[in-house]
């Protein structure tokens, strides 16, 4: 019945349907999140017996005085700023081009989507060769323009750039597909109306495509920001399990990983996780606030 009033019985029944997924989510998502929040306040902790001897804020004061952590925050921000806007722009441009060509568009779509379905480790291995300072493809091409070989993966100056390039390339495929869906959803009539109204190709792009695509752009950028804040596997794979030459690609999650798995400082790892959580939350809230004004559903 559509107009049924919620009763104790119907609510119970609904809960029963939700239970299987709810149990999994609580065990693997909700509980760990709460636990890591709590854990960030453990200052003295016996891991083997699970006894907390002391609570406090000192984990947070520690990380904010740890130059490694501050470097990780800085690197993460550089990474986010380097990857997200370029990913959005490049994937939009590629999607627009793909939308225009009819010939072999299916093939191109597949080609661009491949990075998304390929394992990060395999991709990193290929890029490892591309970045190789002696035999690498990238240096070869740069050499054609007279640029002397760059030690992409060995120089602290270029390591982050190398990481950003690979990450953009990897994330293009999925975002292109999203943009293509968005472009297909824009009714052809709007373009005809705009043409009748005297809008040239550029004005049609800025006045029809951009605003009507804004929900997808918003989705892609929020998704990209969250994903980029959490970057870890690309670094691990590209720099063979190190955070880049002289920590040049040390990000927050990588810092967290080091504290947790190699140094067994669980409280500090949890505290950095909490900081990351609030950073992502803050940026996402800013994006949501911005979207209220500029995203047209």
């Amino acid at each position: 019945m559509l107009n049924e009033k919620p009763t104790l019985k119907s609510t119970g029944k609904a809960l029963l349907y939700l239970l299987p997924m709810l149990v999994i989510t609580i065990i693997f998502n909700i509980y760990p999140i709460l636990k890591s929040f709590i854990m960030s306040f453990y200052t003295k902790y016996d891991f083997f017996k699970d006894i907390v001897q002391q609570w406090g804020w000192s984990n947070f004061t520690y990380i904010f005085h740890d130059p490694d952590f501050l470097l990780a925050v800085k690197n993460t921000l550089i990474f986010v700023v380097g990857v997200v806007p370029l990913t959005v722009i490049i994937s939009l441009v590629v999607a627009l081009l793909l939308n225009k060509i009819k010939w072999l568009s299916g093939l191109f779509r597949t080609v661009y989507f491949l990075p998304f379905v390929t394992s990060t480790v395999a991709i990193a291995q290929v890029w490892h060769w591309i970045y190789n300072s002696d035999y690498g493809l990238l240096n070869y091409f740069l050499g054609l323009f007279g640029v002397s070989p760059i030690a992409w993966l060995e120089s602290p100056k270029y390591a982050m750039l190398a990481l950003i390039i690979m990450s953009i390339w990897k994330s293009l495929g999925f975002n292109i597909v999203l943009f293509l869906v968005g472009l297909n959803n824009i009714n052809e009539r709007y373009y005809q109306a705009a043409e009748i109204d005297g809008a040239n190709a550029w004005h049609q792009f800025t006045n029809v495509t951009v605003p009507l695509l804004s929900p997808i752009t918003f989705l892609v950028s929020v998704n990209g920001v969250i994903g980029s804040f959490k970057v870890f596997d690309q670094i691990f794979a590209l720099f063979n399990g190190t955070p880049g030459p002289s920590k040049s690609a040390l990000t927050i999650v990588y810092y967290l990983y080091q504290k947790f798995y190699t140094e067994w400082k669980y409280g500090i790892a949890a505290a950095s996780g909490v900081v990351l959580f609030f950073m992502i939350l803050l940026v996402t809230l800013i994006q949501m606030w911005y979207s209220k004004k500029h995203v047209h559903y």
Binding site: R189, Q192, E195, I196, G198, A199, N200, N207, P211, H296
Partner: peptide, 20 residues
């Protein structure tokens, strides 16, 4: 001449008003 140059006004069946 294309639509831009002909300067006609047109009302479409589904109106095609810019939703934003």
């Amino acid at each position: 001449q294309d639509a831009l140059a002909r300067k006609v006004g047109m009302v479409f069946q589904n109106y095609a008003l810019y939703p934003h």
